[in-house]
Design a protein around this nucleic acid. Structure first.
Length: 129
RNA sequence: UGAGUGGGCCGAAUGGUCGCUGUGCGUUUCGCAUGGAGGAAAGUCCGGGCUCCGCAGGGCAGGGUGGUCGGUAACGCCGACCGGCCGCGAGGUCAGGGAAAGUGCAACAGAAAACAAACCGCCACGCGGAGUGUGCUGAGUUCGCUCAGAGGCUUCCGCGAGGUAAGGGUGAAACGGUGAGGUAAGAGCUCACCAGCAGCCGAGGUGACUCGGCUGGCUUGGUAAACCCCACCCGGAGCAAGGCCAAGCAGAAGGAAACCGAGUUCGCUCGGUACGAACCGGCCCGGUUCGUUCAAGCCUUCGGGUAGGCUGCAUGAGGUGUCCGGGCAACCGGCAUCCCAGAUAAAUGACCGUUCUCGACAAAACCCGGCUUAUAGGCCCGCUCAGCAU
RNA sequence: GCCAUCAUAGCUCAGUCGGUAGAGCGACGCUUUCGUAAAGCGUAGGUCCUCGGUUCAAGUCCGAGUGAUGGCC
């Protein structure tokens, strides 16, 4: 906790298809006007992040720009987020600014942390009913 | 100055802070240095390299290309030249071999759509009818003429059997054009000139082809991005190719075809022929491997498991040069110099400034050579035409 | 990244060898019925995905582009 450095190395990327599938299967999500966020408790000290940008958002240049903006938003806000989560960020429709994405990431991650890290929800666990 | 035409180039710049990624060095939870998308990275339309299919063979089929000569690793690309068409011109454009090898096709319209034929028309002939006037013959006569007959003339109509392709209209396209002669009417029927075709000869050119001369028949249509013929080219798949490591699971059903000789430690081995299966993109030839007692193996069908890491992977048909030599050019050779992205849920961003003409299309994924398509704005060069001035 | 396939009426699809594009369902109108459905009769509806080229003529042949779908160890 000594380092408040704002790095985003590859250890904090979610990469494999199995990890993505596990997070989607948990079906714990939150959204606002700009972002859709899936989450899952990973039992680690740090919070990790994955991105999903579909072809609906335009050509390769536009998709790359969206991914960079989202990656930057996560990097700059990572120490304000609750620890021990795996998050997937999916943009919705229009391209926002860096400040807007940062506030979205903060708010959505807190909402997911309430659902995932409270002991009652851990007990029940089932998404049904 | 205006209009146009051909070609080349650039594709915001710069500073700070926090980050991402390759390499190198120090040292290892980090720090420093340095490199970090494009002219199209795109579409995947061609051509190669590379890898595997054991070898990459012959014929057929299939596909592609199509003026000539060069360039190239190769090309459907590029250059120069030739020819057709467009443009006053600079220039542009052309899948630009063959339709007098063969087959097919052409709706509608039109008489007729490819080999000559003939609807209207024009023309002479025969027959019939209508008309006509003069002369002839005969009869009658009121001497004015009237009637009949044969023959004639000209115009029209109909029928018959022909001649003709000048003219007409249709169509995208109608079987050379103009003039004269000729004829019953006409026609390359004949002649002159022109256009075009074929053959031969001469000159120039590596060649496509060009120029000139002679002869011939008098004239041959379009479509091959329809089949086809000719010439040349092409084995298939693709870096999710392929190689190595780790992890993991569960197997089941079915399948074909033998004899001979030699050796033998009687387990088999070797050779020959035959057969079977699989493979060599499709078929045939030809070939390769395995097998022909059971089992194993191989093949087919169904089922199951894993989709992690390393490599391939970046020094190359490489870039640059008021360089040298060859070539009209594309390009080739030499010399010097440089190393210039290498990710793998996938690296260039965010924030704060300054300046400007306020920033288009758009981002590598094995690598090259092209083509095509997208592209705000700006710069440079060659050439043409018109106007004005000198 | 690589390799294939498709695009025709509101929907599902035909369309051979180039010659003015159809079928079924649907829509609308009429007949029938007290009314509806069914049935019968009729009508409209097409940039043949887009742009070039070949041809007298292109949905069809050729080239380029756009969009959609499927496959790969």
């Amino acid at each position: 906790m000594t380092s408040q450095r704002l790095t985003f190395p590859k250890q904090l990327h979610i990469k494999s298809g199995a990890e993505f599938r596990a997070i989607y299967d948990r079906q714990c999500k939150a959204a606002d006007q700009r972002l859709l966020m899936f989450g899952l408790a990973n039992g680690r000290a740090k919070t990790r992040c994955g991105l999903s940008v579909s072809k609906k958002h335009g050509c390769a240049v536009q998709r790359n720009r969206l991914k960079r903006l989202l990656r930057e938003a996560f990097r700059l806000t990572q120490h304000e987020l609750p620890a021990g989560l795996d998050l997937i960020l999916i943009p919705i429709k229009e391209v926002g600014t860096q400040a807007e994405y940062q506030t979205s990431v903060r708010g959505l991650a807190k909402r997911l942390a309430k659902k995932l890290l409270s002991p009652t929800d851990v007990e029940s666990g089932s998404p049904k009913t």
